[in-house]
Design a binder for these strands. Sequence first.
DNA 1: GCCCTCTAACTGGTATGATCAGTTGACCAT
DNA 2: ATGGTCAACTGATCATACCAGTTAGAGGGC
Lengths: 243, 243
Amino acid sequence: MFAAITKESLADRVYRQLSETILRGELRSGDKLPAERHLAEQLGVNRGAVREGLKRLQQADLVQVRHGGSTEIRDWRECAGLELLPQLVADKRGQINQAAIHGIMTLRTQLAPGVAAAAALQATPAQIETLADWCRQLRQATTPTERQPRAHAFWTELVRATNNLGYQLAFNSLRSTYEQLWPLLTGVLDPEFRDVTSLEGIVQSLRDRDAESAAAHARTHVRIGEYAITTLLHALPSAGDSA
Amino acid sequence: MFAAITKESLADRVYRQLSETILRGELRSGDKLPAERHLAEQLGVNRGAVREGLKRLQQADLVQVRHGGSTEIRDWRECAGLELLPQLVADKRGQINQAAIHGIMTLRTQLAPGVAAAAALQATPAQIETLADWCRQLRQATTPTERQPRAHAFWTELVRATNNLGYQLAFNSLRSTYEQLWPLLTGVLDPEFRDVTSLEGIVQSLRDRDAESAAAHARTHVRIGEYAITTLLHALPSAGDSA
DNA sequence: GCCCTCTAACTGGTATGATCAGTTGACCAT
DNA sequence: ATGGTCAACTGATCATACCAGTTAGAGGGC
């Protein structure tokens, strides 16, 4: 009903402004950032706020800070990790980035079969039941808006069932990106949400401890969404690269 | 010869100490961190340093900070992204984490074929030549220490050739983890480094624009390393979970 | 002229202490 | 039971020092 008021600290704004400038390519690899004191003056905030923002830039591997020297922009394509994807898909103005969306869909397609296979070997009976329940809930849903969170819950549980740190962390990264696009994907991915049959196939494969079968069902399933996204991206000619 | 002296700022140390405490499970999801003022006093550092460290914890999704309220530990298995993996594989005392290593190897195995396939469709002739050159260099190398960086360079270039943001960022995250284990893996992965034939097969597949063949060669290749790692992990009975 | 050295003027890093701004819970009036 | 008030927390921001590492250029020796 009502949207929550966004509260953004100064340090957050410093981080966002600088990171978006870098991600847009206005500051390129090798460029130097102004000194903290100057930056603080230009942005009209205290130096502490600037430093907190820079710490985050540093953690995201967008810049390299050297004591006594200057702060240098790094090549985020070479350095930055998967956690950058959420910021790439949509900037403050809601501009979406096709390359980033393509990237997340690729990873999803590549990882889903492995997740299903790993879950087949590791899932506990209780987890399998939970998954079966999400399938039932998915069948009962009648609108895309109802289906989306249940499909999401299914995958969350499936990833948890793999008991694999790599899958879990990678999934968390992808999820942050996915959440940025949530309303956009409600409709686009609905054909996939409707394919409960494949999900039920996965659940049955888990019961049978059949990793290959689980992977095959997962592959079938996510290809539906990938096809929908690919079609959509081709239909949107503009808004490709960043400015 | 000599190891570089590590220069770690106070904020970095604050971050590391707190994150390791969380990752070790001594602070669990829902627990509250002491107030910044108290934390600063306990750690014997300035409050600014504490705040900078907390900003990083926040960015890593390890804690949730609420203005006026307290700072709460989050469940990193549910929230943290792939960028956490480097910190998980080895803590300050050099203790390695089997689950994290297993995780990174899984992701590597899962993604490598897709990377090769994507590269087959996207690589430029110049990139293919660069890759072919790395194969030659790999053949000329005579020791594991020589082979490792060249194998690594091959994959870096291959990922670059995919021109896919998802693969590039995911690879960067995995690389950070890999670098933590570099000396450990020099010997273990050498059987894989010696399998230049598969890499040459990938290069030929790129020339032929044959995605499926590229994926198959990649799969063959990375399985060698995965087998070696799996064997090694099973041979190490202890040092499994964190304290 | 060339090379070394030292210094001065940058840079980021740390410290202190004050103040602003949300959150919470106890208490009170309605 | 509802809503208001207030005090005591919490984090957020600020200003101003000063410490510590880097770098470039002035100056001296060859």
